[in-house]
């Protein structure tokens, strides 16, 4: 494992901690898209089917379990928690995420590394993760104002993707064998989706002002 991959995993972990902190400290999930959170839960559940078949390292196994557990916990909180669920912006979180699931599944059936149950679900999870942030970005754009923790959550999530790209570039030059093109192409698409958000995030940071997205 190289430093970029580790930094990517850590910023991913931080983004989840920031989100949990926001929900726990403010007892509110305003500004957070339940659609995106449900998609992430589905992404981790379908990607980590290999928990039962392949062992990579203790680190990998623990991280997989953390990602599955935290994404399920967040969905549970937003749907079931008596107080938290009241702050959910249901009216503006209307992105039809089922289409993303359908499109990702069709693409996975057509484009995969190997025609096996596990490989098709792995490809599905990669495609779905690339698109999963869309409901969240649309919700932020609709609500206009972005609170601090929500802004940081999306920022760390984007940083995680950027580090993964650096990781692939590094691996490309240090390892002879390179066969992760599905993950790389999807990862580039995924990171590109954050470009707009990053732009406004850095402007607000530079001006020391509250993050606002144009309507």
């Amino acid at each position: 494992m190289n430093i970029f991959r580790f930094a990517g995993d850590m910023t991913h972990l931080i983004s989840i901690l920031v989100l949990l902190l926001k929900i726990y400290a403010t007892k509110s999930c305003s500004g957070i898209s339940l659609k995106t959170q449900e998609l992430y839960a589905l992404v981790f559940l379908t990607r980590y089917l290999d928990l039962f078949t392949d062992f990579i390292s203790v680190y990998n196994t623990i991280m997989k379990l953390v990602f599955i557990a935290s994404s399920l916990a967040i969905v549970w909180c937003m749907r079931m928690h008596r107080v938290v669920r009241r702050s959910y912006d249901k009216e503006i979180d209307t992105f039809r995420h089922y289409f993303l699931i359908l499109a990702s599944f069709l693409l996975a059936v057509l484009v995969h590394e190997k025609f096996t149950f596990q490989e098709i679900f792995w490809a599905f999870s990669i495609y779905l993760e690339a698109l999963a942030i869309l409901p969240q970005l649309v919700l932020l754009q609709r609500s206009g104002n972005v609170d601090n923790l929500t802004g940081q959550y999306v920022f760390f999530l984007g940083a995680y993707r950027a580090f993964y790209i650096l990781n692939w570039i590094y691996r490309y030059f240090t390892e002879q064998h390179f066969s992760r093109w599905i993950a790389c192409l999807s990862g580039i698409v995924q990171t590109a989706l954050y470009a707009d958000f990053f732009y406004y995030y850095f402007i607000s940071w530079k001006n020391n002002a509250k993050l606002q997205l144009p309507a």
Partner: peptide, 10 residues
Amino acid sequence: NVESEPHDEL
């Protein structure tokens, strides 16, 4: 040979 390897990234 394109033997699929286990996915070592998260």
